[in-house]
């Protein structure tokens, strides 16, 4: 059962990443692109967790956690920059 569920999930997450990328390319405004980048980060976390289950290796999980943290910090820093013009006041 897992052998059929995992490829289907891979396809779905790949589609999700492509849609986020589409919004990042066409997004009319800067904030749209930032939102798409944030979504892409979260999609990547899902993808890496799925790869971990597929390869039966729990070491992938640490990288997923790191990407989640980096994505959050990056989004906050960029939106702070757009809000104020600088990051550290």
């Amino acid at each position: 059962m897992l052998n059929t569920a995992i490829p289907i999930a891979f396809v779905m997450i790949g589609l999700a990443m492509m849609l986020s990328l589409y919004r990042m390319v066409i997004g009319p405004d800067m904030t749209d692109r930032l939102l798409a980048l944030d979504t892409l980060y979260i999609n990547t976390v899902a993808l890496i967790v799925l790869i971990g289950i597929d390869m039966n290796n729990s070491a992938y999980f640490e990288s997923a956690l790191l990407i989640a943290i980096m994505g959050f910090v990056g989004t906050v820093a960029l939106s702070k920059y757009m809000l104020r013009g600088n990051i550290i006041e």
């Binding site: 779905m12 999700a16 986020s20 999609n43 899902a46």
Partner: peptide, 15 residues
């Protein structure tokens, strides 16, 4: 897994 991938896809469709 399928529900998780489905919701992820739905979020991106909304985006």
């Amino acid at each position: 897994i399928i529900v998780g991938a489905g919701f992820t896809l739905l979020g991106s469709i909304g985006l």
